[in-house]
Computed example of a mutant assay.
Amino acid sequence: MTGIDKFLAEARTTLTRVTPQEVDALRGTDALIIDIRPHHNRLAEGEIPDSIPVERIVLEWRLDPEGTHRLPNFTADTTVVVLCNEGYSSSLAARDLQRIGLPKATDLIGGFRAWSTAGLPIREGGTQAIT
């Protein structure tokens, strides 16, 4: 295994990845569900209720538990679930969040598409992402 496949496999060794059903159970708790999909995907396909869209380019700044540009109301102990379209980019993003001080960061297996296929709730998409 070489290239991106190796890089992805290494990133996932530190993650306790979660299923769509496990993420659904986290909705309404103090966990953060972070959607890093591009706006056009969220607009076309919808969003997970209670998720927070955050542009990938600012993800680490908004989720650094000690950063001055962070989102409010979370700590280093907060469970953070990152999702992308199919669960690849989100694994790399979650690994990066662990590196900056969020040991409970992980990602959604199969991404938004797995959530949708599972028939779980979807809200209308297009929420303005945090930049």
Rank of each mutant, 00 (worst) to 15 (best):
K104T: 09
R123Q: 14
D24P: 02
S89Q: 13
S89I: 04
W61Q: 13
Y88K: 11
L92N: 02
L102C: 04
G28W: 12
A11G: 00
E55R: 11
T78Y: 02
L108F: 11
P121S: 09
T68L: 14
Q98A: 08
D50I: 07
A76S: 15
A25V: 01
D30Q: 13
D50M: 05
V23Q: 03
V80E: 04
I36A: 03
V58W: 09
I4Q: 10
L59V: 07
E55Q: 14
I100E: 11
I130Q: 06
P38L: 05
N85K: 08
R42P: 09
L92K: 05
K6I: 02
T13V: 05
L63R: 00
G119W: 11
D77C: 03
A94V: 04
S90A: 12
S116K: 14
G125K: 10
I100T: 12
S89K: 11
R37Q: 01
D5K: 02
A9N: 12
P65T: 12
I122K: 14
N73P: 08
E10S: 07
P72S: 13
A9T: 06
V82Y: 02
C84D: 09
D64A: 08
G125Q: 10
P103R: 03
K6N: 13
A105P: 09
G119M: 03
L63K: 06
V82M: 03
R70N: 13
F74I: 07
I34N: 06
G119C: 09
M1R: 07
E86T: 14
L97S: 04
R95K: 15
G119F: 11
V54I: 15
R37N: 02
E60D: 01
R95D: 13
W61M: 14
T131N: 08
H39R: 05
D24E: 14
G101Q: 12
I130D: 11
V23P: 03
